[in-house]
Simulated scan of single mutants.
Amino acid sequence: MVDIVIEAEAWEAHGVPELAERAARNTLAHLGLPEDAEIALLATDDARIAVLNADFRAKEAATNVLSWPAGDLSAEEPGGFPAHPVADFPGEPAFLGDIALAFETCAREAEAAQRPFEAHVTHLVVHGVLHLLGYDHICDKDALLMERLEVEILGELGFPDPY
């Protein structure tokens, strides 16, 4: 379900394919969505994600995670639930979109928060998948919903509340 391109070698030692697959599947299952959806994930470094962040968000800095939904599933009302993804072709899984993770930023944040790297990256993948599904944190109602879902999903995966 998660097609991963490892662009930065530092990711190789951290089992990101299995970690991302588990996080994505559990996020979809928690929301009652089919687990056969497809996601593309780029495991990259700060230099590359800074370019992507500048190109797509006009922010000249590295960030931990970026996501590009394949479609707009956003809820119509703040704090509401987004629409369910639909496959482009009958019988095929829905393509949800792309996620990119930056190794150095993820590692720095995990260390600063005194959290295991695996827990932090799992949180970021869950966060990215929720964005692909139309969840956001622009207004307070949406942020509370998204954070609650993240805490619930991470708890099901055996990770503590990151907030």
Rank of each mutant, 00 (worst) to 15 (best):
G128K: 03
L42R: 09
C106P: 04
I153D: 03
E7F: 11
A113G: 05
I6Q: 14
H120M: 13
H84D: 15
Y163K: 02
A100C: 08
D55Y: 12
K59W: 10
F159P: 03
M1I: 03
L33Q: 03
F159D: 01
M1F: 07
P69D: 09
L157R: 03
G97H: 13
R108Y: 14
E18W: 06
L52A: 05
L154Q: 09
P34S: 04
A87P: 13
E7K: 06
V121F: 10
P78F: 14
A37I: 00
R108F: 15
V121G: 11
E77M: 13
S67G: 12
A113Y: 14
A23P: 10
A62V: 08
E152C: 08
E118C: 07
D46Y: 05
K59M: 09
T27R: 01
E92R: 13
A54H: 10
D142K: 06
A107L: 05
R25I: 10
H123V: 00
A143W: 10
T122K: 05
G91K: 05
L124F: 11
L41I: 01
A70S: 15
E109I: 05
W68I: 00
H30I: 00
L28I: 00
Q114M: 07
A24N: 03
E60A: 12
P160C: 02
G15W: 10
E60G: 01
A119Y: 10
G128A: 11
L73P: 11
P82M: 12
P34Q: 04
D142E: 07
G80K: 10
V125H: 03
A54E: 10
N64C: 08
E76L: 14
R22S: 03
G97C: 11
D142P: 11
P85M: 10
P69C: 12
P85I: 07
V125D: 07
L66T: 04
A94F: 08
H137M: 06
F81N: 08
V126E: 09
D161S: 01
D88C: 04
G71F: 12
R57T: 02
D140M: 12
M146P: 01
I49T: 05
L132Y: 12
P93G: 12
E77F: 15
T122I: 05
L132I: 03
V151N: 09
V129K: 04
E38R: 12
L133P: 07
A24H: 04
F95V: 09
T122C: 14
E104K: 04
W11N: 01
